[in-house]
Design a protein around this nucleic acid. Structure first.
Lengths: 118, 118
DNA sequence: GTATATACATAGCGCGGCTAGGCATAGGAT
DNA sequence: ATCCTATGCCTAGCCGCGCTATGTATATAC
């Protein structure tokens, strides 16, 4: 595994977190979110539509985000998403969970393993 | 989701990393690894045997760890694991992947979302 | 006219971890 | 004596997330 590739498994659960975080800053449409994830992550997160769209649909179904169509001067219509009240709460919760999680992993990785038996 | 609970989804792929990291420090047996993960993580990672043992078997099958039985003064026999050469390489790779991954997530979470359209 | 980029959608698969159960030994409590 | 708890190992089968693969549609560049 090269240093600039991500273990896909590690991603589980973090994509919705990142998506909510981005939409929280500004209303975005799907294709745009894929680009932002790619650019902001320094080309680490390169997702296909097949990965992101179902996640957006799931987030909308659970009412964390709300969609609306909007014309663009170029290309076809875009489906924008904005975050809801529940979405804000979900984002807060997921951020806490993320920090707890990475903190706990760090503790284990840096932790001393006692030499004595239990 | 409470702050002291982990989103199980986030765990995907990180358990083998933590397990390899622990065994790298000292030979350990399964039940012991569960305890260390629980204690070192500050009660964040509380795994059942049904979670850990299959992971150990998988790591051994891929020859990242090697097992051997050893009597104990109390209780039944224990199956210890030690890390192999390949396991050391795997651990290094997974550590890099972990750092890349968490770094990229941080970039996205803290990233500025430009106001202009692409 | 066809290749590329944009933009959205979904059925179905793969795979990691978890549930739920089982087996076995020892020590302490009742 | 019997039960509970802790220790210690094992596995079939499920669940759920993300990915593959594919399809549709519009606009621009060559």
């Amino acid at each position: 595994m090269a240093a600039d590739t991500v273990d896909k498994e590690l991603l589980k659960g973090t994509i919705p977190l990142m998506v909510l975080s981005l939409i929280d800053k500004r209303d975005l449409y799907g294709y745009q979110i894929i680009k932002y994830l790619r650019v902001l992550s320094g080309e680490t997160f390169v997702f296909k539509e097949g990965t992101l769209y179902p996640i957006l649909h799931s987030l909308e179904k659970r009412q964390f985000i709300v969609s609306y169509w909007q014309e663009s001067s170029v290309g076809r219509k875009r489906k924008y998403y904005r975050i809801s009240e529940q979405g804000l709460r979900e984002l807060t919760d997921r951020l806490m969970a993320w920090n707890t999680f990475t903190g706990a992993v760090a503790l284990v990785l840096e932790g001393e393993v006692p030499v004595n038996e239990a």
